[in-house]
Amino acid sequence: MKLAIMGAGAVGTSVAELASTYDHTVTGIGDSSSAAVDPDGLDVGAVLERKRTNNTVGRSAPEDLLDGEYDVLIEATPTTLGDAEPGYSHVTSALERDRHVVLANKGPVAERYDDVRRVEQKSEGTMLFDATVGGAIPVVSTIEAFDSDSVTAVRGVLNGTANFILSRMATDSLDYEHVLAEAQDLGVAEADPTFDVDGTDAALKCVIIANVLYGGGYTIEDALVEGIQNVPASALSLAAEDGRTIRLIGDVADERILVGPRLVPESGTLAVSGTQNIVQIETQHAGRLNVSGRGAGGHETATAVLRDVGLLE
């Protein structure tokens, strides 16, 4: 398959790096200001080196990439709220050209799900987005593998940064600011960790799950979201005395989306530690499924993207 990759951050570059091992050809790599395009296949190493040294991927305009030769557009630009641009326009312009789209960017399927689905319906192309929820963990495809009517609830730990902070606060009785600074040093938290700690990132993933479960209609406005910024070390120690701990849990059930710090059994399934993610899927006839693994990271998310690409072949 010929892949055009929009977005040259951790996920976009990882997809480019791993594409050849899946026998795909990268015909375009673009970011917000420029693009490198070659219908016969790019020298990925050279493009990424140019991005590293000159902070530019190529001489073409980003629009040339969307207009170029590819079977699948990989949309891996940063997630934005509201109109979900520029990701939304990238997705629709590929679909309007009857190309497939694989998303790593949550924006279009969290904030404008009904809009993109409408464009997809008129297209010969298909849109897949398993990489938007839970990184390497197959969440969307696992839900879709069941009849969505038979899934009664989906809940779990969907943000590795928040989980790292809470689990470290609990095990070492450290306060929030201290652990956040440490997480930033380790590269677990970004310089601006707002979306991770205020629950927005987990909420967007829950919104996507709700859109899959209930056939669309959800945006982040429909989620009740609380963050972990105000959870003190004292709350974690009180929970621990009771055999529990606190995790940022996203919960989709009864057509409701709730995200916030919750008490969970300390040795329970949901109390994953570090940057791990876990998703529990409650089914009507098959009980509870637990899927856990690495929920973020360039190669992890790129693996999910390439798994989706494989389904389009």
Binding site: E226, I246, I249, D251, G260, P261, R262, L263, V264, G268
Partner: peptide
Amino acid sequence: LQVISPLAGGESA
């Protein structure tokens, strides 16, 4: 005040 509650429906021990 912020309420940290057990998870409804899940394993709440």
